[in-house]
Amino acid sequence: MSDTIVKTTDLSVAFKVKKDLVPAVRQVSLSLEKGRTLVILGESGSGKSTYMKALLRILPHDAAIDGAAEFMGEDLLLKNEKEMRELRGDRISMIYQDSLSALDPMYKVGDQVIETIRAHRKSVSRAEAREQAEQLFVKVGIPSPRERMRTYPHELSGGMRQRAVIAMSLCCSPYLLLADEPTTALDVTIQKQILNLFLELQEKDGMSIMMVTHDIGVAAQVADEIAIMYGGIIMEYGSTREVLEEPANPYTRALIAALPKSGDRGRLVAIDGQPPTIVSMPSGCPFSDRCAYATQICKSSIPHLTPVTQTHQTACHLYERKEE
């Protein structure tokens, strides 16, 4: 058996916008091995969350998914709703970007974790599930977990709620954790504790993580591989060191210069211009209208990932021509 946990081939997602199907994710091919971490970086609206939701198939019903997505050798797109339901929250779980609205305001946070455990582990009693949930709360750094479990989401601070959401995502020991900006709402110490917990689970259980973050420091710390996403396509993909230190794509360089480094939060040097929306996408390279090096071909055709080294690929016409 291969150790590939998840692998997508030309995965595309299109949303229905006023009767038209507009692509938000375009032919994304990525793969992730057991126990490793892939970080997706990119500006707002580049399709990171959409890509992860497509893997769990929790997009709105009118979204069209195309291509192939394999999870542990099984085709995710061929599974029916019931089979997907068994995977979700159990073998694949997701930490939602917006933890403020990720919890049901009417139920106590503890009950929401217990409910998840019991949905997948029918033999676990309520008391046992409560016990497990409490231990998870301790692990994610929630003080006095027993009392916290009995509170409603609105009674918790943003950071505390985020930790509860993380606990919920880990409650069934997933093989694959889709983490959409999991630590953005947390202060540095807690962030460190959470990332260490992830690391521990990776070493102990071989959990794989696909994480979206806007923090280069975090990316450098946890990622084995990094994918740069922009306008729904992968602009650059490779080992952490190569992508961060030897970026071959003008967009990656601009992004790295613009993203906050750990420690100097908030000092953003924005890339000139606005990222395109899915309805105003340039027909060629999505970055062509902001790129200082753009040429005629950049405006007319979409670049494809080409190898730079064995562990590093980039999608840029400039690079392709350099090779010739």
């Binding site: 929790i58 339901r85 939602y96 990720a102 919890l103 305001p105 009417m106 997948h120």
Partner: peptide
């Protein structure tokens, strides 16, 4: 259409269990 309902789906709850949350809200 609230976003916590998507979380409930992402948790792998069955449709009746999700409906209970919706009605409760």
């Amino acid at each position: 259409n609230r976003s916590f309902v998507t979380t409930l789906r992402a948790k792998g709850l069955s449709e009746p269990a999700i409906m209970r949350h919706v009605l409760r809200n």
